[in-house]
């Protein structure tokens, strides 16, 4: 499916985040080019999820900023200062940024269709007929056209995650963020979700994916970013990062991350 909206560019400038005394992000600089698929990998606690959540301001940075298409997220740049935006503006920004959670976070008391149409109706005030038609089209695209009237708990984990992806796409975002989309799934359900992400990647939407699925990163990513201890250690095309990493830390860490995945 073609999206009328243009894919977004993301610039992360010296992003820092502390939780109390714990510094999770220690100055991250990263550029995500429009239409590219960026996969962030790294050991647990390396700050990848926090970075992703900061892109749509679910987490406010302690210092530094993130700009989507040159516009700082959550702030307005004026007179050399970042002025905090009002909640309403932040919500409007978020409708352009899709987010897919590790635990799906579907609304269990709403049907699949109601889950998908809620945000376009309320946050974007679009016409119900148009939104419903679009939602059914999206559900069809993720292979769940027949589940529109079902409640999320009646679906498998893989199906729920595919609904969550359809829900994120219903806002016609210019960028979609995936926070370990397959980590809560049984191994046999991982493939169906990754297929949907792969299909999405081919449409030219900007995607940022945090994942432990190295095979997926190798196949789909334009850029793989390796993070460790709150910093970007190395980034580059998958062939380079997996085949011939520049940094010793990447080499040792990736061998640790990759090994368990193939050793069952």
């Amino acid at each position: 499916m073609s999206t009328a909206t243009l894919p977004a560019r993301v610039d992360i400038v010296d992003a820092r985040k502390s939780f109390g005394t714990l510094e999770v992000l220690k100055g991250v600089n990263l550029t995500v080019k429009p239409g590219e698929v960026t996969v962030i990998v790294g050991p647990s606690g390396s700050g990848k999820s926090t970075l992703l959540r900061a892109i749509n301001h679910l987490e406010a940075l302690s210092a530094g900023y993130i700009a989507v298409d040159g516009e700082p997220v959550g702030y307005r740049l004026r007179g050399g200062k970042l002025h905090e935006r009002r909640e309403k503006d932040i919500l409007a920004t978020r409708t352009g940024i899709g987010f897919v959670f590790q635990n799906f976070n579907l609304f269990p008391h709403l049907t699949v269709l109601e889950n998908v149409v809620e945000a376009p109706l309320v946050a974007q005030r679009r016409n119900r007929q148009e939104v419903t038609a679009k939602a059914l089209e999206l559900l069809d695209r993720v292979g769940l056209a027949d589940k529109a009237g079902v409640y999320p708990r009646q679906l498998s984990g893989g199906q729920q995650q595919r609904v969550a992806i359809a829900r994120a796409l219903a806002l016609e975002p210019r960028i979609v963020l995936f926070d370990e989309p397959t980590s809560a799934l049984d191994p046999e359900l991982v493939g169906e979700v990754l297929d949907v992400v792969r299909d999405l990647a081919s449409t030219g939407t900007t995607l940022v994916v945090v994942t432990h699925e190295m095979g997926f990163a190798r196949d789909v990513a334009d850029t793989v970013v390796f993070m460790d201890q709150g910093r970007v250690v190395e980034s580059g095309p998958p062939a380079q990062l997996f085949g011939n990493p520049r940094e010793e830390r990447t080499r040792t860490s990736l061998s640790k991350v990759i090994e368990p995945a193939f050793n069952i």
């Binding site: 909640e87 919500l91 409708t95 987010f99 976070n105 579907l106 609304f107 008391h109 309320v122």
Partner: peptide
């Protein structure tokens, strides 16, 4: 996670409370 998902979708605060949180 329910509130977080609603916020990520840009759903306004009052609607988050009445449509997402309260029914649950």
């Amino acid at each position: 996670g329910q509130l977080e998902a609603a916020a990520a979708l840009g759903i306004p605060a009052w609607r988050r409370n009445t449509r997402i949180v309260l029914p649950q």
